[in-house]
Amino acid sequence: MSKMLAEFIGTLTLVLFGCGAAVLGGAEHVGQLGVSLAFGGAIIAMAYGIGPVSGCHVNPAVSLAVFIAGRMNLREMLSYWVAQFAGALAGAAILAAIVGSTASLGQNGWGPGYLGEFSQQSALIFEIVMTALFVIVILGSTSSSAPAGFAGIAIGVTLAVIHIVGIQVTGVSVNPARSFGPAVLAGGQALSQLWLFFVAPVIGAVIGASLYRARLLS
């Protein structure tokens, strides 16, 4: 239960800080760089805050990758998923209460009317590739051969850079739970496009983790 609570709090914080920066700060005040740093900073903070308890996955794709790499069992992965999706929904609900609306909660998307108006193909490629690279950094920086104590910084900086590169493409997910919370409350287009932010991160996680499972990167 302590691990589930940690994952719940961690995912809630990621959504509240990251999406909160996008919604409450936005382009006028913090800009794309500020939003990117909010997501990365949230991960760094939670890595050291809840990392010793649960490993700070706060992302179903990461938990899937850790499972594929042989570092957790199926039952534990499924319990993490429950906590992560619940935490993301709670974080989005808190943000909605602050904003007073569910119309704009930092939801992910693509196509006409969404940020850079990139195509579905571009969104799919971006999310797959970036999730795979993100997972590679996570599994590598948390391996027994990696320098101790620096994983949180490496992971947080990587997430921030991914956002700097890709906010205009999809708003950046690489995390099904992060997409789930805002989309469920916002509904409409965000909910209809949610499938991509489940499928692409899962494919990316499988690719990245399989390289470790096959001992090609370990």
Rank of each mutant, 00 (worst) to 15 (best):
M1S: 04
M1R: 00
S2M: 07
K3G: 09
L5A: 14
F8R: 08
I9P: 05
I9S: 07
G10F: 10
G10E: 05
T11N: 07
L12G: 02
T13K: 03
L14Y: 14
V15W: 11
V15R: 12
V15F: 10
G18V: 09
G20N: 04
G25D: 07
G26M: 01
A27Q: 10
V30D: 00
V30R: 01
V30A: 04
G31V: 04
L33R: 04
F39W: 15
A42K: 13
I44D: 02
I44W: 07
M46E: 11
A47G: 06
I50G: 10
G51L: 10
P52S: 04
V53M: 11
G55K: 12
C56E: 07
H57V: 08
N59P: 11
V62L: 10
L64G: 05
L64A: 07
F67P: 02
F67E: 01
I68A: 00
M72A: 05
M72Y: 01
M72S: 00
L74E: 06
L74R: 12
L78Q: 03
Y80C: 09
A83P: 01
Q84A: 05
Q84C: 01
A86C: 13
G87N: 11
A88M: 02
A92C: 00
A92K: 01
A93D: 11
I94E: 01
L95Y: 07
L95S: 06
I98C: 04
I98H: 07
I98D: 06
G100E: 06
S101C: 02
S101G: 04
T102P: 05
G106P: 11
G106C: 04
G109N: 06
G109V: 02
P112E: 09
Y114R: 10
F118V: 00
F118H: 13
S119N: 09
Q120M: 15
Q121N: 14
L124K: 07
L124V: 15
E127Q: 15
I128W: 14
V129C: 12
L133H: 11
F134K: 12
V135N: 04
V137K: 07
I138D: 07
L139P: 06
S141N: 06
S143V: 03
S143H: 15
S144K: 15
S145R: 15
S145H: 14
P147F: 13
G149A: 14
F150I: 15
G152I: 15
G152M: 13
I155A: 01
I155K: 00
G156K: 09
G156A: 09
V157W: 03
L159A: 10
A160C: 08
V161W: 07
H163M: 13
Q168P: 13
V169R: 09
T170M: 13
G171Q: 04
G171S: 03
V172I: 15
V172Q: 12
V174Q: 13
N175M: 05
P176E: 05
A177R: 06
A177W: 06
A177E: 06
A177Q: 00
R178Y: 14
F180V: 02
A186I: 05
A186R: 08
G187Q: 04
S192V: 03
W195D: 02
F197E: 03
A200L: 08
P201N: 12
P201R: 12
V202Q: 07
V202W: 11
V202P: 08
I203A: 12
I207P: 04
G208R: 08
A209R: 13
A209M: 10
Y212K: 12
Y212G: 07
R213H: 08
R215H: 15
S218T: 14
